[in-house]
Structure formats: structure tokens, C-alpha cells
Design a protein around this nucleic acid. Structure first.
Lengths: 158, 158
DNA sequence: TTTGACTGGTTGCGCAAGCAAGCTTTCGAT
DNA sequence: ATCGAAAGCTTGCTTGCGCAACCAGTCAAA
């Protein structure tokens, strides 16, 4: 906190691209995905997270962490998905405070039905514009960045 | 629309990183930036766009395009910034329908005051975790992706 | 010149998301 | 055994944002 080294030309370009992507990509995706499948991006993320969990079951708080959503938000999203029959909420046996969200059969079916549409959009918005070499070179960089961002929250800085 | 080729391992990793970044980065940035400067990410983007325009003046619709915000949103943001004295709205002389947003002196001062904080956050959240080589290799890939996303909106697809 | 189509912007409304305060259950210390 | 702290959600409220409907000003054609 005290050494303000300005961005050089390459960093600035990198930054601008990154900002543009973060603002445009999610919308571009959802604009097509939601009408086609009736699932928001967030819904889809929650269903995917559950589908990949053992027993297709996850603590509410774990779900919040893996989807990077606030606890309050995930609470309402899960309620909503429950109302729609895609998820079931069970009070956790060994801890009366906690709840688990479980993916129902209907939820799994819905997820599988949505997958092609999701895939098509991902390809159209990203991979159709990138070559194999691009992915190989940029992939690890993005992975490092993503990991760093995930690590930060705990009061970060220094 | 009909050839659903699944993502390979590298593509999937790339995609996951990208999604994580788009969801986490903006919040990470704003969480520190807003308290420090009183400007949201969006506010800052608008001020920057204006500061880079000739005469520090931009049509409302142009502002919407460069910030990737909806017209309705930009309308309200500009109103808000006007109320705060950072921007001035002038009815356009040669077209009675249009308005221009102009950055005021106070707005410019505010932007300059906010810059160090912005820079610090950008460094802390991104560039501190990446090497020069990372930026050189991934930069062009991100630039291409950003350009493709910007090009898409016009009914895209096919 | 009047009328109809269009463009630029604003407003009403609804949804997504977070924060802060609350409630219940658990756990640790006394 | 009790009591205070903390964990795990949930709920009330506010804000950010987009869509659709709307108003006003422009422009072209009849």
C-alpha cells in the first residue's frame, strides 16, 4: 500500500480486455441460455455444482462457496429451485442448524436437457473465436488468476 | 446449430477459470474500490469513458455502448452523476432528441483522486499474481475474445 | 404541410444480488 | 448444568440493472 506503479501498455490492454469480458460474457451467455432452457446462469451453476457432488448433495454454505454467491442469495435460489422441484432441501441429521440441498431426478433431467444449449453457447461465444494454441497458452494463466482471486477473500492484502 | 462437440479437458479448464474470473473479479474490485472512493465500478467506467473522449463529451447512447450498459441504465447513472456534480448533461444543439454528457472539473478531479486506489486494486487482484510472460502470451488471446464478444450482439449466431 | 416511420432518451416495473439483523442450534468454558 | 459465543441459515430492506412501454424530436414522402 504505497507503491503506485502505473500499468504499462501491455498490462493496460490486458486489463481492458479482461474488464470487457467480465461485463459482456455473462450477459451474452444468459441472453440465449435463459430463453432456451428456463434456467438462469446462476440456476445452472447451482445444478452443476450439485450434480458433481457426492450423493448429489451439498451443504447450503458449501453451495454458496462453490458458486461464489452470498449465503442470502443462495438461500433464496435454493428455495426457488425447490419450489420448481429441481432441488430438495433436507435438514441435516448430524447438525440441526445446517441444511443440505439435493439434486432431484427432475433436476438432473433438467440439467441434462439444458446441457446442449449451454455447450452451444459456450462454443459460439468463446471457443469458436479461439484456436487450440490460444487455449493452451492462455489457459494456465487464467487458471492462476482464478486461483488467486479465490484465495484473496480472507482479509487479503498485506 | 446442431453439432454439439463437447469440451475437451483443456477447454473445460479454460472455461471454468473464465467463469470464475467473471463472477469474482468485479466484486473483488468494487468491494475495496467503492468504500475507498465512493465510486462504483460503473461510475468509474463512465468517468473514464468521458475523460478519454474529445472535449470530454459523449452522446448518451455512445456512452452506453462504450460502457456496455443498457440505455436505461446509463440514463439513470448519468442522472445520478449529474446530481453529484461529476457530470453535466447538455441537450445536443444539432439534434433536439439527443443529449451529451460532459465531464465536469469536479468529475475529472474525482477521477484523478480515485485513480491510485483503482490502480492498487488492479495490481493486487490481477497483476501481482501474473508474470510478464503471462501477460504477453494471454493478452492477445483475451483481446481477441473481447473483440469477438463485442462483435457478436448484432443478432449473431449461425 | 401533414403524416407516418424512426431515433434518442426516460420512466414503470420486476428480478437478481448483497448487507445487516434475526433465529435456532451447537459448542466450549466454567 | 448453565451460559455465552459462534455457526448456519433466513428474512427485511436497498441497490443495480434490464425490458418494455412511452414521449419527443427528426426526417421523408405524399
Amino acid at each position: 500500500m504505497g507503491e503506485p506503479v502505473a500499468l504499462d501498455e501491455e498490462e493496460a490492454a490486458f486489463w481492458r480486455s479482461l474488464i470487457r469480458i467480465t461485463t459482456v460474457l455473462p450477459r451474452a451467455l444468459e441472453d440465449h441460455f435463459l430463453p432456451e432452457t428456463g434456467l438462469t446462469n446462476t440456476d445452472y451453476g447451482v445444478l452443476v455444482a450439485l450434480s458433481e457432488a457426492p450423493e448429489r448433495l451439498l451443504r447450503i454454505s458449501a453451495l454458496a462457496a462453490t458458486t461464489a454467491l452470498s449465503l442470502s442469495r443462495i438461500s433464496r435460489v435454493v428455495d426457488d429451485l425447490t419450489r420448481r422441484g429441481l432441488v430438495e432441501k433436507r435438514k441435516c441429521a448430524e447438525d440441526g442448524r445446517a441444511s443440505n440441498a439435493v439434486l432431484t431426478e427432475a433436476g438432473l433431467a433438467r440439467l441434462e436437457a439444458a446441457f446442449p444449449s449451454h455447450l452451444a453457447r459456450v462454443r459460439a461465444s468463446v471457443f469458436d473465436h479461439l484456436g487450440t494454441e490460444d487455449i493452451r497458452t492462455a489457459g494456465p494463466v487464467l487458471a492462476r488468476l482464478a486461483a488467486a482471486l479465490d484465495a484473496a477473500p480472507p482479509t487479503d492484502d498485506c
